[in-house]
């Protein structure tokens, strides 16, 4: 039977996500964030999740809603202080959510390392700061560096612009951000796409994420992110 990674509905897209999963969540602020898949995850019910994401959610929808329902045990995040992070801040002050602060480049590199099959790497970022405290240090070429581990995940939730039935993906402008590296770093990569194209319609030179990194694709033509 021909390969077809498109799923019929959200329930099929979310099937099998287990309690205790580590979830990579694409997007930078509202741009490139798979909001409908997040709603699907809320509906699906998995709990005790570790979520890795740049920002800590806004208002009371999406990630913020997932946290408000006490379904997120731990957040791995670079910048929790984004627009209207009311839910996260309330939970964090009450000690009801664990926070691991990671420099943005280190987060990206940890995700990419996982996708590349690496266990860890050394970086100069954060040396001499509280974030490097207690971590292994080593000098390379005269420069002090700190050990950071790959961030392998059970699930990645991705937003794409175009997808074909093999799961080849393109992205829209700055909506690319974390999505391609997250798609590569998870056991199960679930994509929502704005547009569906025929196999062969994407220029091979322009495919950003080849289908090998993608498991399921749901067509969600929701339009543009909201303008703030």
């Amino acid at each position: 039977m021909a390969i077809n990674k498109f799923v019929r509905d959200m329930a099929e897209a979310m099937a099998g996500i287990k309690d205790g999963s580590t979830v990579l969540l694409g997007g930078f602020g509202a741009v490139g964030q798979p909001n409908q898949l997040l709603d699907g995850l809320i509906e699906q019910g998995a709990k005790d999740l570790t979520v890795a994401v740049n920002n800590a959610g806004s208002g009371r929808v999406g990630l913020a809603r997932l946290m408000e329902l006490r379904r997120v045990r731990k957040l791995i995040c670079t910048f929790p202080r984004s627009r209207d992070p009311v839910v996260f801040e309330t939970l964090y002050k009450a000690g009801e959510i664990e926070l691991e602060i990671t420099p943005q480049g280190t987060l990206a590199q940890r995700i990419q390392a996982a996708g590349y099959g690496m266990g860890a790497f050394y970086t100069a970022t954060a040396v001499g700061t509280p974030i490097a405290r207690g971590k292994e240090h080593r000098e390379f070429d005269g420069r002090e560096m700190v050990l950071e581990y790959a961030l392998k995940a059970d699930v990645a939730l991705i937003e794409a612009w175009q997808a074909d039935r093999w799961g080849n993906l393109t992205y829209k402008d700055a909506g690319r951000n974390f999505n391609p590296i997250m798609a590569q770093a998870a056991e199960l990569t679930i994509v929502q796409t704005q547009h569906v194209v025929e196999l062969g319609d994407l220029n091979p030179e322009h495919i950003i994420t080849p289908g090998i990194f993608v498991d399921r694709v749901l067509h969600v033509p929701y339009g543009d992110p909201p303008i703030f």
Binding site: F28, G29, V31, G32, S82, R83, Q104, G105, A108, Q109, I111, Q112, T123, A124, T125, Y171, K172, D173, A174, G175, R176, N177, F178, N179, P180, I181, I208, D224, P225, P226, I227, F228
Partner: peptide, 30 residues
């Protein structure tokens, strides 16, 4: 609405500009 900067302000892309994913973007930095 798809084109923002790190401060989440709306921007434009100049002729010759390009988009990269986060690991490449931070590879430029690191």
């Amino acid at each position: 609405p798809w084109l923002i900067n790190a401060g989440k302000q709306y921007i434009t892309l100049r002729k010759g500009g390009s988009y990269v994913h986060h690991a490449d973007s931070f590879g430029m930095i690191r």
